[in-house]
């Protein structure tokens, strides 16, 4: 049967192939290899178990814990730095605010100074203007008085001449009185 199997494999039909395989059986159910497999499985498992539990797993666990610690530390440091940054920002803002207040003060001061100068200048100018106005008023008054006198003189002269021209005899005092009355009237 074995020799025919090897020689007639080429012409083996499906059924025969199955039959042949049945002769071989499933390697999984070949009980003669079981002790061998079980023995080597146990050896392998023991080796893996001891390597893992004695060496690898504690080491990996320690590394992971270490990393976790490092991360926690870093996070704490970052938190601290963040607080510092917040404080720095607050100081900056405070400085900004105080500078602003200072600037406001300086501006107000300058404004007040300018106002004072301005007020003084305005007062001075007002005084000057008032003085000038008074002066001009006085001169106007003088001019007006001068003019009135001149008008009286001219009127008196004119009236005396008119009276003389009309053939009268001009009494200077009478003419003057008449002129004054007329001017007043």
């Amino acid at each position: 049967m074995t020799t025919t199997n090897t020689t007639t494999e080429a012409v083996a039909g499906a059924a025969e192939a199955g039959h042949e395989a049945a002769k071989a059986g499933m390697p999984q159910l070949d009980f003669s290899t079981f002790p061998n497999q079980i023995f080597w499985l146990l050896v392998t498992l023991l080796v893996i178990y001891f390597v893992l539990s004695r060496v690898a797993l504690p080491r990996i666990g320690a590394t992971l814990a270490e990393r976790k610690g490092a991360i926690t530390n870093d996070l704490a440091a970052a938190e601290e730095l963040k607080l510092k940054a917040v404080a720095a920002e607050k100081a900056y803002n405070d400085a900004l605010v105080s500078a602003r207040v200072e600037a406001g003060k300086i501006v107000a001061q300058a404004k007040a100074d300018i106002q004072k100068d301005l007020d003084a200048a305005i007062a001075r100018a007002d005084a000057e203007i008032a003085a000038k106005a008074a002066e001009s008023e006085k001169s106007i008054g003088e001019i007006r008085a001068g003019a009135l006198e001149a008008v009286t003189a001219v009127a008196t002269d004119t009236a005396g001449e008119l009276v003389a021209a009309l053939g009268g005899k001009a009494d200077a005092a009478a003419v003057q009185a008449a002129v004054t009355a007329a001017l007043k009237g």
Binding site: A21, G25, M26
Partner: peptide, 8 residues
Amino acid sequence: ALLLMFAV
């Protein structure tokens, strides 16, 4: 199925 094919 496998048992029927190969083992029985």
